[in-house]
Design a protein around this nucleic acid. Structure first.
Lengths: 251, 251
DNA sequence: CGACTAGTTGAGGACCATCAACAGAGGTGG
DNA sequence: CCACCTCTGTTGATGGTCCTCAACTAGTCG
């Protein structure tokens, strides 16, 4: 349904071979032989390009494909019946979009690009058909779904009983870790999210997010210029992130 | 590792045939033919009995089996480095325990029985071997992992920006729905959790949980006697549960 | 009986949502 | 060029929510 998208790239479908993709160590084919990667490549039908702010899938649309992120940065927003808008997921290069839609049969939120991005589309039917030949693909699916569920559960349960200060520290550190695992700097990165987006992700208001970040800067824990973040004191951030309970005990 | 358990049933291994189990419509074999259920039955090696408070698996133990709940009620507690203790999952009859351990290779929390319970043990190796024959089992796994991830994500993201009042209403309604789906009363049930447990699940303190429940009773929304809960006004509870944002706007 | 656990109640104050006003950046049109 | 709008982010005042600490009751177990 390309018509639904507000903006799109001219669609430069890059050579979509997984063999030559520099993300192959992060993405699905990681533990396939090169012969199997060749097979897998055939499932990757198109390489989708998205401009900044362009919509990949709309909330409620029927699920048919997973997408692997090649370049860029995407978010998922889920609207509830009220005026409420939750930011329910963020994706980096190497991540798979859509694994929360398999069970539901519909995409549970609107996915859009935070920067211009390129993605590999994996039609789920073809994926399952291939998985019948290559059980490693099934395994990949279990392991990753299970791991994602566990990590999501742990981090959200932790956030539930944390102050705004600790929630933001958790958030920045997990973003930092995402960049680190992908070979970028863990201390200096661009995070193209508004204060409002961050607030929607963490269950805080934009004012609180702004004030807390300002307090961090005053304490020389980090430096922010626009949407560029520079983490200056990772160990103290970690300390704040894991500070137990909602409040500091009085002494 | 039965030796790790503090208490156990004498181990009455009931006839473990899935064909005769009255939960078969809820549990994994739901969409298998009766011939395939027969095959599946052979994977279900033992029927484990647990006394109240007995431990099924300890946090950090190596993952080897899923467990299906036949009767009873279980919880998972995860200890973090601090003194923090989170209640990260609850399971009812028909639920599968351990799907958050597949990716990690270890059980992420200590699972114990809130009432005396019986479970079917499904060694994961055998499960995968059988799934190679019966791809429906793989499908079952994907669909349910994906659905569980999505529901967990949505409910926890909602809780993040809700007041104690709304969090508790969400919690009670979701428990009520669990009972309804299993054919029990959705308005009158026994919930063998302490205030502390509920607080650990929702990110609140036991005092706040107690006070909020007392306020509900004063408003005739529900009645509590010990750990018996009777929901008197479901529609107003639903209204509180979905009340948007953290505070009521002033008028 | 004392020891322990689960639950209740009250006082005080930390935390953060809310509302409002404002500043700067970027885009548009005349 | 300027006037105007929108979007994003900042700052301040105010008060509701709920955490913390403490004291107390009731029930259970030895």
């Amino acid at each position: 349904m390309p018509g639904q998208n507000t903006k799109r790239h001219a669609g430069v479908p890059r050579d979509s071979g997984c063999l030559s993709c520099y993300l192959k160590a992060l993405c699905i084919p990681a533990n396939l032989s090169s012969c199997e990667k060749q097979l897998f490549s055939q499932v990757v039908t198109t390489c989708v390009g998205l401009d900044k702010r362009a919509v990949l899938v709309s909330q409620g649309a029927r699920f048919d494909s997973l997408y692997a992120v090649r370049t860029g940065f995407l978010k998922q927003e889920t609207a509830l019946d009220g005026a409420e808008q939750l930011l329910t997921a963020l994706w980096f290069p190497g991540d798979i979009i859509g694994s929360d839609a398999i069970g539901l049969g519909r995409y549970p939120g609107t996915v859009s690009a935070l920067e211009s991005s390129t993605l590999c589309k994996l039609p789920f039917d073809s994926f399952l058909a291939l998985a019948h030949e290559l059980p490693q693909l099934y395994q990949y699916l279990h392991y990753n779904l299970s791991l994602a569920m566990h990590e999501e559960r742990m981090s959200l349960h932790q956030l539930l009983c944390r102050t705004a200060e600790a929630r933001l520290a958790c958030f920045l550190l997990s973003i930092s870790d995402c960049f680190r695992r992908r070979g970028y700097s863990s201390r200096h990165f661009r995070l193209p999210l508004s204060r409002q987006d961050i607030g929607n992700y963490l269950g805080l208001t934009q004012e609180t997010v702004g004030r807390t970040l300002a307090a961090y800067q005053a304490q020389r824990l980090l430096r922010i210029e626009g949407r560029e973040y520079q983490l200056l004191d990772l160990s103290r951030l970690e300390q704040m992130a894991s500070s137990t309970g909602r409040r500091q005990k009085r002494r």
